[in-house]
Design a protein around this nucleic acid. Structure first.
Length: 938
RNA sequence: GCCGGAGUGGCGGAAUGGCAGACGCGGCGGACUCAAAAUCCGUUGCCCGCAAGGGCGUGUGGGUUCAAGUCCCACCUCCGGCACCA
């Protein structure tokens, strides 16, 4: 009668934990005790509900949190919702439902599903980024960014009030000072060209544009100039790079971040631009002025400044290239080239990123008719414009060295420009003139530098250029400043006011909303439809929201909103002190819990979320609001869960089967049941037609493919403990792995075996199995128990849950046949099972007559003495091939092992008449007899 | 193109340079049953052999080593990311 019934026991224990506040975390960890902050990347509550991918990471952290709790650690394990997001906004536009309504509904679904899985979150700490009490502090942090400038000397952010004002700025009066400050804030406005997506009615960040179309929806994107809020993340580029060093993150993630930051070192070099009516000695005069005055901070109009990582190739410069948007292009272009240049510029502006990057890699460009003077040789160098040079990187212009840069080489080849070799491979290999060599080596045809190796050349020419005032060492980053505003109505409003003049026009002056007035609420909107201009939807809000007065001056609110990233940049801090109305986080609480000890989430956030959150954290650190430089100590990315393995055959248009390796896009895929398929050698083929190969693979879950697994359904069919356990048993946490419904059945069977180990299934009432007894356990049972505990303990710490579960299965396999099952081994087993299958463990604990909850029971201690055997079985190899086994004392030395091995009749026979050249005996592991090869004497 | 990661039975996977395939799914056999399901027990890499036993096996080809899934070199395939950053 009392079968294992998850549908009965799971809700029961979830209610028990909730009513007993089993997982409530105190404000501060107990003094002197250990703390663990175990964090999941909180989800975006989409309308589809939880996906089976979510519980993977959540179960992993839940096991760690429960395990640590049982070991007496004070555990912080919160959950919340990253609830601003485009889908709610699109839903509002489609249906007219206010986004807050649908969002709250979705959160309720997510919360129900998460609770259904028995995660041990402290739900009293739940936060949603859309909650006005949360938005208040997101806006407050924006004001911290607005109030901060980056001091490059100190390499840290400081209050804007401490920004030194140059004398000439101060002399120009208060508006100039304000402008100077605004230009140095970490949050600033910019008129830069942005990715405007007409279909979505918004501007997108570079990283939201994939191959020229929007990441969401794949709509076309065009570049237009628009006033935007930017965050000066580039100021922190160096620290974001260097301070990765000490983090316990996967090296691959660190590398991803480093590559994204893209630090490179090289030099800036000025090429003199002679005026049209220049005297022959204009260059000499310029050189003299530079030698006296040094290298200016800003290039000025008389030079073309370029950035290069290879100043050692200066003598190989045969032309220069400017981005079409480069500010000097118009002035440089000679009248006879004006038409072509303008046409090219217009075409480039119209081109989407797709056209500029993906299609036909062929280089395009036009000649401006102008030349610059090479700083070392004094020779004129023609100036071109081409869209392979980016306006937004370096100085927007390059010195082209076609012999040693593949892009320049391609351009030179296309337009028949000169190629001059100035570097040869260091190994002296011959290079034909006019060929490409991008490696490092030795300089040739390089004036006084000829013969130098690349590194020496770079160091020396940098010094020489600096002395001559013609160049300086420079560092550049691929990382761009963070485009932080969106033209959306479902996001945090900026706490910023724009001053208006008497005519109601903006004066360009802004003021922050005072802290006491936060949060700036989202205004109610009558209509959610996007406009056809890039004007933000909030500009259509009622005037009582839009216009405010301060000290007799009228202001218009900022109508952009923050991107979804904003809320997720600091939620891990708010969890620590979620109800605080006085500050965003109590410093005492922050010092006690930070940093996060374990952070688990999807690899899709490897770059952006983690980089943005680190950036905000560093600013908060610089401004004294948090105590550590880095927020996340140990980071782990869970892998993706794919759909069930599928076999796909292909039918040709004529109707016949076509082998998967010879199919064309015109053939129709047909999903095949496993029975129609068999493996033949390397490939799967049709069982009835073995010449036809069949594709076998698992695909990403997607609605269109129809292979999405719904957690509600799995819980209904198998129970939450089975879902948890299966997701952990599938394979390594970090790996991508396919779903298998029969695999879920397998772990369900295991849980039923656990149940029967303790419960008498044939009794009428819920009572212990008849085999349960109070016998003292045998040595063999204790050995089995302690080895299991030891392995599971170590595996949880290594996040190797699949092997931990395998070991528990072995333990159950060991116990099942026992006619008498000592309580003294079953009870510790139930405690070890508890973090993995908490509902079942609680129920079994109760059946065993112990006081609930097992969730807070003590984790069993491993008794070392049961981990070691007196004797050990050791393989015996002859010539590296396994030929027998011997049993020897565990501490047997090589001589004893050898004696035991030769005493084995089979081994003795194999060695008879042979010369043993060498014996390799590894105590406790193996023994190998190496024979002298025939004809060799030893 | 560049940068990661991965290739092990029919499938998911396990293995500090030391007995390849733990554990699970699936398969096969048995016990229980009138029968089936459930359960319990056994078995299950491939090939030869009645057996004892032998041979071959971790994507491919080389190498280091007494010993390689594991280390080194070259290559192939799949998955993920980046993509003119001078």
């Amino acid at each position: 009668m009392p079968r294992y019934q998850p549908s009965r026991i799971e809700p029961k224990w979830q209610e028990w934990w909730e009513s007993h506040e089993t997982f409530a975390t105190p404000r501060l960890p107990s003094p002197g005790g250990r703390k663990a902050y175990v964090l999941d990347m909180f989800p975006y509550p989409s309308g589809d509900g939880l996906h089976v991918g979510h519980p993977e990471g959540y179960t992993a952290t839940d096991i760690v949190a429960r395990f640590e709790r049982m070991r007496g650690t004070c555990v912080m394990h919160p959950m919340g919702f990253d609830a601003f997001g485009l889908p709610a906004e699109e839903h509002a536009i489609r249906t007219g439902t206010p986004p807050r309504e649908s969002t709250e509904r979705n959160i309720a679904t997510f919360r129900r599903q998460l609770k259904m899985l028995g995660f041990s979150y402290d739900w009293s700490r739940e936060v949603a980024t859309t909650d006005p009490a949360y938005v208040r502090w997101t806006q407050w942090i924006f004001l911290v960014l607005f109030d901060t400038w980056f001091d490059p000397e100190a390499q840290r952010g400081r209050p804007i009030a401490e920004l030194p004002i140059p004398a000439d700025v101060a002399a120009a009066g208060e508006p100039a000072v304000a402008r100077f400050r605004d230009a140095h804030r970490l949050a600033y406005q910019s008129e830069a060209p942005v990715n405007w997506c007409p279909a979505l009615g918004t501007v997108l960040a570079n990283e939201e544009v994939i191959g020229g179309v929007s990441e969401r929806g794949g709509h076309p994107v065009v570049r237009i100039p628009l006033r935007q809020w930017m965050l000066r993340i580039t100021a922190y580029a160096d620290r974001l790079d260097r301070e990765l060093d000490d983090l316990a993150w996967p090296e691959s993630i660190k590398k991803l971040q480093r590559d994204w930051i893209g630090r490179s070192t090289g030099a800036e070099v000025d090429f003199f631009l002679p005026p049209a009516d220049a005297h022959a000695d204009a260059f000499a005069a310029w050189k003299q002025a530079r030698a006296a005055g040094g290298f200016p901070a800003a290039p000025g109009d008389d030079v073309l400044r370029v950035y290069t990582t290879r100043p050692d190739t200066l003598y190989g410069v045969t032309f220069m290239v400017l981005a079409p948007e480069h500010p000097l292009v118009d002035r440089l272009t000679r009248p006879e080239h004006r038409a072509a240049v303008s046409a090219y510029q217009e075409a480039a502006a119209r081109k989407s990123d797709l056209d500029r990057t993906d299609l036909a890699r062929e280089k395009t460009g036009v000649f401006t008719g102008a030349s610059a003077i090479h700083p070392l040789t004094g020779r004129p160098v023609p100036i071109w414009i081409a869209d392979y040079v980016l306006a937004t990187y370096g100085t927007g212009g390059i010195m082209a060295v076609p012999a040693h840069d593949d892009r320049d080489f391609e351009f030179a080849t296309t337009f028949g420009l000169e190629v001059v070799t100035v570097v040869e491979p260091a190994d002296g290999a011959e290079t034909a003139a006019g060929t490409l060599f991008t490696g490092r080596g030795r300089a040739v045809q390089s004036g006084p530098y000829t013969g130098l190796d690349t590194a020496t050349f770079i160091a020396r020419v940098a010094t020489d250029l600096a002395d001559a005032g013609q160049g300086r060492p420079a560092v550049n980053y691929k990382l761009r400043d963070w485009l932080f505003s969106r033209q959306r109505f479902w996001g945090e409003p900026f706490p910023i006011l724009h001053e208006l003049d008497a005519a109601g026009e903006p004066t360009g002056r802004v003021r922050p909303v005072e802290e006491a007035s936060l949060p700036v609420p989202l205004p109610p909107l009558a209509d959610f439809k996007p406009g056809d201009s890039p004007d933000p939807p909030l500009s259509r809000a009622g005037h009582d929201w839009l216009f405010v007065e301060r000290e007799g001056v009228r202001y218009r609110r900022e109508t952009n909103t923050m991107p979804q990233w904003a809320g997720s940049c600091w939620y891990y801090l708010r969890f620590l002190d979620p109800a605080n109305t006085d500050r965003f986080l109590d410093p005492e609480v922050e010092r006690a819990w930070m940093p996060v000890d374990l952070y688990v989430g999807g690899a899709e956030h490897a770059v952006l979320h983690l980089l943005y959150a680190r950036f905000w954290h560093k600013v908060l650190f610089d401004r004294g609001h948090v105590s550590c430089r880095e927020p996340f100590g140990r980071l782990v990315n869970q892998g993706m869960i794919l759909g069930e393995m599928e076999f796909t055959g292909y039918r040709a248009a004529t109707g016949g089967w076509i082998s998967a390796d010879r199919r064309s896009p015109a053939d129709t895929p047909v999903r095949l049941p496993a029975e129609q398929v068999e493996k033949q050698g390397e490939h799967f083929v049709l069982r009835d037609m073995p010449t036809v190969r069949v594709e076998s693979r698992a695909h990403k879950m997607s609605k269109s493919r129809g292979n999405v697994v719904n957690p509600d359904q799995v819980v209904r069919d198998f129970g939450a403990d089975s879902l948890r356990l299966y997701e952990m048993f599938m394979g390594p946490l970090e790996a991508t792995k396919p779903w298998s419904t029969s695999g879920v059945g397998g772990v369900r069977t295991f849980l039923e075996r656990c149940w029967r180990l303790v419960v008498d299934e044939r009794a009428d009432a819920l009572e212990p199995a008849s085999q349960l007894c109070d016998d003292p356990p045998t040595d063999g049972q204790l050995r089995e128990l302690h080895r299991m505990i030891d392995k599971v303990t170590r595996d949880i710490q290594a996040l190797s849950f699949n092997t931990a579960i395998a070991r528990m299965m072995e333990f159950v396999n060991f116990c099942t046949p026992l006619d008498r099952r000592p309580r003294a081994i079953l009870e510790p087993f139930v405690t070890v099972l508890a973090p993995f299958a908490p509902h079942l463990a609680e129920e079994l604990w109760e059946v065993l007559g112990r006081a609930a909850p097992v969730s807070l029971a003590q984790w069993p201690t491993v008794e070392e003495r049961w981990l070691h055997d007196d004797t050990v079985e050791i393989p015996v190899q002859v010539q590296g091939k396994l030929r027998g086994r011997i049993v020897v004392p565990t501490d047997a030395d090589p001589a004893a092992m050898q004696a035991a091995a030769v005493a084995d009749p089979r081994i003795a026979e194999l060695l008879a008449g042979k010369t043993v050249a060498k014996v390799v005996a590894v105590p406790g592991r193996l023994i190998n007899f190496v024979l002298a090869s025939p004809g060799t004497t030893s």
